[in-house]
């Protein structure tokens, strides 16, 4: 097969699309579903700007074939509520400058806190190091994750 019918849940809603086998998840999410919070930058799974959650696991959507989302729950930044503790912590603590990395950073942080509700500073730094901030705003990003953890973001 070189095309297939893909069914998955996107931010809580069932969706279906006919796609070529080679469709990349980031392009599908942006172009078919308008999820422009999935940022494209390196296209090689290096920078983390395109990070989404696939059944709660952070993946680089720019380097993931869309067919791997079959039957899965895909969460993009559009699926994270404004009152979400991580999102609020990033906003209230100004944990961004240009903002391009922010959706990926927030989703990375959510994945961390879902696994480890009370991470140490070192654990946060090790985990978040898979996201690159070209503005080098790491200090406030790390602090925002600590604030979110204290606010019970894993719940």
């Amino acid at each position: 097969m070189s095309t297939l019918t893909l069914c998955f849940r996107l931010n809580g809603a069932e969706v279906t699309r006919e796609i070529p086998t080679s469709a990349v998840l980031a392009e599908l999410l942006r172009e078919e579903f308008g999820c422009t919070g999935v940022k494209l930058a390196c296209s090689r799974a290096v920078c983390g700007a395109c990070t989404v959650l696939l059944d709660g696991v952070p993946v680089a959507a720019c380097a993931t074939f869309a067919f791997r989302a079959e039957g899965a729950e895909v969460t993009t930044i559009e699926g994270v509520a404004e009152e979400d503790p991580v999102r609020r912590a990033f906003a209230e603590h100004s944990a961004f400058q240009c903002g391009y990395c922010t959706p990926g950073m927030i989703l990375l942080a959510k994945a961390l806190l879902a696994r480890n509700p009370a991470p140490t500073r070192e654990e946060i730094a090790a985990w978040m190091s898979s996201g690159l901030c070209r503005c080098t705003g790491y200090q406030m990003i790390l602090e925002a994750v600590e604030i979110a953890a204290r606010a019970g973001a894993s719940a």
């Binding site: 070189s2 070529p20 990349v24 390196c42």
Partner: peptide, 13 residues
């Protein structure tokens, strides 16, 4: 240099 262009289709098993 990174490309954002679509990848050529392939046969998927």
């Amino acid at each position: 240099a990174a490309s954002q262009y679509a990848l050529p289709p392939f046969v998927l098993h």
